[in-house]
Amino acid sequence: MLSVKYFASLREQLGCNSDNVEFVAGETLAQLAGRLANKHAGSLSDIQQPTTRCAVNQQVVELTVVPVDGDEIAFFPPVTGG
């Protein structure tokens, strides 16, 4: 399983802050984003925006990364703190 977290506008668009999805060996984060967009048809379209960022186990990574079973994945828009 993968634990998926959503923040800010993605969390609001979906209406919940986390998800548990089946782990698919060899799937990149970009492919996972596509799978999540399909799963939540229409309510998570922004996850495939080119500006969407991703973290695996709290480390920001590129969407070409392939996660491993049990990872915590987070999708979010560009940060705006400070």
């Binding site: 800010a8 987070a74 979010f76 940060v79 705006t80 703190g81 400070g82």
Partner: peptide, 9 residues
Amino acid sequence: LKTSAPFWK
């Protein structure tokens, strides 16, 4: 901080 810390306004 403004470009890397995970805060959203």
